Simulated scan of single mutants.
Amino acid sequence: MGDVGARFRAAYGAPPGHLLLLAGSFAVTGWVALRLAGEPAVGRMLLWFVGAVIAHDFVLFPIYGLADRAARRVLGSRAVPASGPAPLNHVRVPALASGLLFLVYLPGILRLGRPTYLAASGQDQRPFLTRWLLATAALFLASALGYVLRRWWAQRR
């Protein structure tokens, strides 16, 4: 069995689980596409999706690519040390999570659609910015604590 798995990996370029996961992803995507095909707003959804792809690939990716390159330049060889935890990853993960939270709650943070939100929920949008900042601080604090613990553990060994 090991020989077959090694031959498959050599021919495909990844373990069999990768192909299985990819096939499952395509199946779910196809099911969603079939469900959306009958929707009257499918054109607007497709336009939004294409716009999101373009915005990510031509605006956001170059920005965070440059930010990552700058962080690597500042950290130098400490960005990816030969032993112990990489500090750059302890900045990347909370930054990504904070950025995703910002994108999801952007209308609330910027207080867009204030009358509609108030009518629908009976609540004000003022706490959104404070809560996002607190969540961002908690993410970076947890990541820093994780880095310190991982570094301490690596030094003990």
Rank of each mutant, 00 (worst) to 15 (best):
residue 105 Y to R: 02
residue 14 A to D: 14
residue 152 W to G: 06
residue 130 T to H: 12
residue 148 V to A: 13
residue 146 G to Q: 00
residue 121 S to R: 08
residue 132 W to F: 13
residue 96 L to F: 15
residue 15 P to G: 14
residue 134 L to N: 03
residue 80 V to L: 07
residue 121 S to E: 09
residue 77 S to D: 15
residue 75 L to C: 05
residue 75 L to N: 06
residue 133 L to M: 12
residue 105 Y to C: 06
residue 114 R to T: 14
residue 32 V to H: 01
residue 123 Q to E: 12
residue 2 G to Y: 01
residue 66 L to P: 00
residue 1 M to C: 01
residue 105 Y to H: 05
residue 151 R to V: 01
residue 81 P to S: 11
residue 49 F to P: 00
residue 107 P to T: 08
residue 15 P to C: 03
residue 46 L to V: 05
residue 97 A to P: 00
residue 28 V to L: 15
residue 7 R to A: 15
residue 45 M to T: 03
residue 43 G to N: 01
residue 82 A to M: 10
residue 86 A to K: 04
residue 151 R to E: 10
residue 149 L to A: 14
residue 73 R to F: 13
residue 78 R to M: 07
residue 86 A to F: 07
residue 145 L to V: 14
residue 143 S to R: 11
residue 23 A to V: 15
residue 5 G to K: 15
residue 57 D to N: 13
residue 74 V to D: 00
residue 16 P to L: 04
residue 63 I to Y: 00
residue 93 V to E: 06
residue 123 Q to G: 04
residue 23 A to R: 03
residue 93 V to Q: 10
residue 154 A to M: 01
residue 108 G to Q: 03
residue 42 V to S: 00
residue 155 Q to M: 09
residue 5 G to N: 15
residue 74 V to F: 02
residue 41 A to S: 14
residue 97 A to K: 01
residue 148 V to R: 15
residue 44 R to Y: 08
residue 125 Q to T: 08
residue 79 A to S: 09
residue 1 M to I: 12
residue 23 A to Y: 00
residue 51 G to E: 06
residue 91 V to A: 15
residue 106 L to G: 00
residue 13 G to T: 06
residue 133 L to R: 09
residue 122 G to A: 01
residue 109 I to E: 03
residue 143 S to V: 12
residue 58 F to W: 13
residue 110 L to V: 02
residue 134 L to H: 04
residue 94 P to L: 10
residue 27 A to P: 01
residue 132 W to V: 04
residue 69 R to P: 00
residue 80 V to H: 09
residue 90 H to R: 05
residue 150 R to S: 13
residue 138 A to C: 07
residue 12 Y to S: 03
residue 59 V to F: 11
residue 128 F to T: 12
residue 62 P to R: 00
residue 155 Q to L: 14
residue 70 A to R: 09
residue 140 F to D: 01
residue 19 L to K: 03
residue 125 Q to K: 08
residue 141 L to V: 14
residue 112 L to Y: 06
residue 110 L to D: 01
residue 60 L to R: 02
residue 11 A to Y: 04
residue 145 L to W: 13
residue 73 R to T: 08
residue 41 A to I: 09
residue 13 G to F: 11
residue 60 L to A: 11
residue 137 A to F: 04
residue 124 D to I: 14
residue 127 P to V: 09
residue 119 A to T: 05
residue 115 P to R: 07
residue 134 L to D: 08
residue 132 W to R: 08
residue 91 V to Q: 06
residue 17 G to Q: 10
residue 85 P to Q: 05
residue 12 Y to I: 06
residue 63 I to A: 08
residue 7 R to L: 13
residue 121 S to G: 01
residue 84 G to Q: 09
residue 36 L to V: 11
residue 106 L to E: 09
residue 152 W to V: 13
residue 133 L to C: 02
residue 79 A to N: 02
residue 57 D to M: 11
residue 98 S to A: 15
residue 95 A to M: 10
residue 41 A to H: 08
residue 93 V to C: 00
residue 50 V to C: 11
residue 14 A to S: 09
residue 128 F to L: 12
residue 66 L to A: 14
residue 131 R to A: 07
residue 34 L to Q: 12
residue 81 P to M: 12
residue 102 F to E: 04
residue 53 V to L: 07
residue 60 L to P: 01
residue 146 G to H: 07
residue 53 V to A: 05
residue 63 I to R: 00
residue 106 L to H: 10
residue 110 L to N: 05
residue 52 A to S: 11
